[in-house]
Each structure stands twice: as C-alpha cells, then as structure tokens.
Amino acid sequence: MPAKSPNKTAEFERALAEPDTQLYVLRLCISGMTPRSREAIINIKQICETHLQGQYELEVIDLYQQPALAAKYEILGTPTLLKTLPAPVRRLIGDLSDTTKTLRRLGVAVKMNNA
C-alpha cells in the first residue's frame, strides 16, 4: 500500500521531535557500602537529577543484604547499573564516573547534546 508509507515516515519524524518523557527504571546493585559503592550512588543520583528529572525510578540494592538477587539480575561486577526500561536492557559496570559514557549507554546522551 503506497499510501501508507508517507504516514509512517511522518510518524517517525514526530516521535523523534517529541521530548523524551519515557520513564527510566534503574537499579543500582552495590556490594556493601564501600567507597566505590558510595561513589556510584552519588554519580547516578547526579546524572538522574541533571538529565532525567521526574522521569526515573532508581532502586539501590545491596547484594550483601539480598544475595539471591545477584543471580536473579545476573550480576558479575559491582557496582552494576541495570536499565530495564526503556528497552533495550542495559547493564553498566563501574562506578559511573564516566558520565558521557554512562549517558550514552543509558540512551540519554542524544537529548543532552540537543539541549
């Protein structure tokens, strides 16, 4: 159906132009309150407040408290930031000190550049 394709293109353009109001579901898995864990918490909070204000949910999990979750979330290194929404699922290892890389991996980097 040739009539539909311009519609689709228009839809795509519109979606791209729209401001990103999607909800970010984030989980930060840490292993005890080590300096590195603390660092990671500070970093993610800062990123979220700066770039995702009002559109994120952040849960901090201490794996020592809930060791079963380590297997559930397939954690290898700590700290690990899990982004379950929006798709795709992303798994960021490290203390999130590299903000540019973190934002790019979380898929918010584009917006920052636009702004």
């Binding site: 060791p67 079963a68 290898l76 290892i93």
Partner: peptide, 20 residues
C-alpha cells in the same frame, strides 16, 4: 551486554558464588 563506566570489582560474582 557489558559496558564499563568506571572502576568496578567482581564482588557481584563473589556474592553469587557465596550464596550458591
């Protein structure tokens, strides 16, 4: 699936092993 964003350790693996 793994992206490094800074310093980290494998404590998560240790916890998993320890738990198992």
């Amino acid at each position: 699936e793994i992206h490094e964003t800074g310093d980290y350790d494998l404590e998560g693996l240790f916890i998993r092993l320890g738990h198992a």
